[in-house]
Design a binder for these strands. Structure first.
Lengths: 146, 146
DNA sequence: CCTTTTTAGTTGCGTATGCAACCATTAACG
DNA sequence: CGTTAATGGTTGCATACGCAACTAAAAAGG
């Protein structure tokens, strides 16, 4: 790749990560587009869809459909927010607590695969740098304009 | 995000990069799923679809459709390979040469956006680490396996 | 040679994703 | 208050992607 090596690696890591997650979580009916929402809800249950979208920086339409899936598979339930009837709070079900260790172990294993031959310090550095680049990306796409 | 921060940043960088590329290249009818193929062809023209797939590690079905798009938009043409009638060689058109500077400048700008606040050494490190993680991902998904 | 297997490419299907249009509810304002 | 604007959520549409089934051509093996 002559130019733009970064984009190529990011594309590969994203796509291959999705393949891995899909395969491993398929028996649990958790799709690659859904697991991130579970991760956020494990941290803080009962968020609004809008809060999930905002936190993960994912389109609200995409979020709506991901929550559809999770609800249909029995991992979350929507409860209309009594303080604002337009919005839903999303709560984990006991079934979600049950798969939590599975999900964490799958993600941990993928991280281990990626980190083969890298030192913990290098992994830490990678996270640091990706996080800073993400913030730049975010600010450019949203933050004042263009 | 409690665990799996890496996946989250990669997801964000991938999706936001796609948004940026889509917007910038939309006037030229080059989609976010197509520009990588052009980049490879700028390096070496006349590759087989299979070689493109293999080099970018992208599914051959996806490749076929990306080349469809590029052909329809006038950037490449398929020529049946006389040495193996099953395969096509993909050649750039003059129109592809014309957009080359535009494409490169768009990608360069995105890299500059991502690298704000990072030193050139840090960017170099990031590429290094991503490249090594990509190789790990590749080996796990393909290489013997799993 | 003829049959079997492999391989390059195409296509159908399922999923994910962003955008824009839309709906219902809430907030802002005159 | 009543009208207008903003906002949370849903849905239609377009694109991208992997997988699997399929086709046609080439390679392998008897």
């Amino acid at each position: 790749m002559p130019d733009f090596p970064l984009g190529r690696w990011i594309s590969l890591l994203y796509r291959y990560g999705q393949i891995y997650i899909s395969r491993e979580l398929e028996p649990y009916r958790i799709g690659r587009g859904q697991y991130l929402f579970l991760l956020v809800l494990y941290q803080r249950d009962g968020l609004l869809q809008e809060e999930l979208s905002c936190y993960l920086n994912i389109d609200k339409g995409t979020t709506a459909r991901a929550i559809d899936r999770l609800e249909e598979a029995g991992y979350v339930r929507r409860v209309q927010n009594s303080e604002d009837l337009r919005s839903n709070r999303v709560y984990l079900t006991p079934q979600a607590e049950e798969v939590k260790p599975v999900l964490f172990s799958v993600l941990k294993k993928w991280t281990e695969i990626l980190s083969q031959g890298l030192t913990p310090e290098e992994m830490e550095t990678a996270q640091q740098l990706l996080s800073r680049m993400s913030e730049n990306a975010f600010k450019h796409i949203h933050g004042e304009g263009k």
